[in-house]
Each structure stands twice: as C-alpha cells, then as structure tokens.
C-alpha cells in the first residue's frame, strides 16, 4: 500500500459521496447518467466475486479491501436504486441515449480473449476491468448532449479522474519498488480509461475558459 493507492481509493470514495450529496441536497439527478451508474454497479458486482471465497481476516489489506468492495457494491446499487425511484422524474432519460451494448459487447469479447487464467471468475474479472475503462462514456455523452456541465457533475468526474490518475501513479510506484509486479491487463485498460478523463478535462477546461458550451469530439 502506497500513498498513491490510498489517495486514489479516497478520491474514488469522494466521487461517490459527491454524487450522493448532490442528489440528496438538490433532490434531483439531472445531468447524471443512469447508464454509467448501472455500468459501475455491474463493474463492481463482476469485479468482486472473490468476496464470496476470501476470508476478510486473512490480512489487514484483505480486511481493508473487503470493506471497500462492500462499500463500492452497496453505494453503486443504492445510487441506481435512488435514480430509478425517488429521482426518476428528474432524470434526463431521453438525453441519456448512449447505446450500452456497444460497451458491454466489446468488453465481453476482450475478456474472452484476454484473461489471466482459464476460469469463469477470471474471465468475469477481466470483463469488469475492460468495462470500467469505458463505463464513463454514457456520462460524457450525456454532458455533451446537454452541453453544460453543472459544477457538481464536474466535481464528480474530476474526483473519478483523480482516482484513475492516482492509480496510474500507484502502478508506476509498484513497478519500481516491487520486483515482479507486472499487471499488463489492468495497466492497458487503466491507461485507456485515464486517457478518456484527460480528454474530457481538456475540453471541459477549454469550454469553461471560452464560456462556451461543452463539445466533445
């Protein structure tokens, strides 16, 4: 565990807290993509299947991971539930039109082609890694359709982007200090994902500076 990893996890938790607070205080979920939130719920449910066979008391790190995994699964399901019930009337359903099968399909194919071991759990795990890399796309699509990024949605995406960037630094750190630590699959997917955020922030900052509506290519 290094400083980048823990800071990355904390920004990930912060992003979720920002989203929940925004919905609670403004009593609406305008500008939030339900599709992205459902993809994240799917990412966590498929990533953390190991919860079923891991003893959380094995080590302090396992304990920490177990708590975080349960936190991510439960909060992502809670967000989806809230958006589908309490805040349903404020959800921009028509604008949230990204076709999710275009993300799930390729992620499934990639997982069948690239995985670490030939077991169902490993293929499902690889699927979650690939899906996470692109799960933000419906959210970016929605932002570009509405053309405006509310501050709070910007903060949410910023916290998520910080999480990705810090994880990348964590990998650099570990590759340097832990001999034999190589995670090609996670790294490739992670770099793609970090690139998506970097691209978003480039356009976000540019549109803010020029006071124009956000346009993503």
């Amino acid at each position: 565990m290094n400083i980048f990893r823990i800071a990355g996890d904390m920004s990930h938790v912060a992003s979720i807290a920002i989203l929940l607070l925004k919905m609670k205080t403004s009593r609406n979920c305008a500008g939030v993509s339900l599709k992205t939130q459902e993809l994240y719920a799917l990412v966590f449910l498929t990533r953390y299947v190991d919860l079923l066979f891991t003893n959380p008391l094995r080590s302090p790190l396992t304990m920490y991971n177990t708590i975080m995994k349960i936190l991510f699964i439960s909060t992502s399901l809670y967000i989806v539930y809230q958006m589908r019930t309490r805040y349903k009337h404020t959800y921009n359903e028509a604008a949230d039109a990204f076709r999710v099968p275009f993300l799930i399909g390729p992620a499934a194919v990639a997982a069948l082609l690239f995985h670490l071991k030939n077991t169902v759990v490993e293929v499902v795990w690889a699927f979650s890694i690939f899906l996470e890399a692109v799960a933000i796309m419906p959210q970016l699509f929605l932002l570009q359709k509405t053309g405006e990024v509310e501050n709070i949605t910007g903060h949410y995406i910023f916290a998520l982007g910080a999480y990705r960037g810090l994880y990348a630094l964590n990998w650099v750190w570990r590759a340097f200090w832990e001999p034999g630590y190589r995670q090609w699959l996670t790294w490739t997917a992670g770099i793609v994902q970090t690139g998506l955020y970097a691209d978003f922030f480039y356009h976000y900052i540019r549109s803010k500076r020029q006071g124009k509506k956000l346009k993503l290519p």
């Binding site: 190991d50 891991t54 790190l61 995994k69 991510f72 994880y167 964590n170 630590y181 995670q183 996670t186």
Partner: peptide, 10 residues
Amino acid sequence: DAEDDKKDEL
C-alpha cells in the same frame, strides 16, 4: 491463495 495476492487492488 498466494496467487490472489497479486490482485490486491480495487
């Protein structure tokens, strides 16, 4: 179980 130690990230 030792193999899973590699997957110690979230």
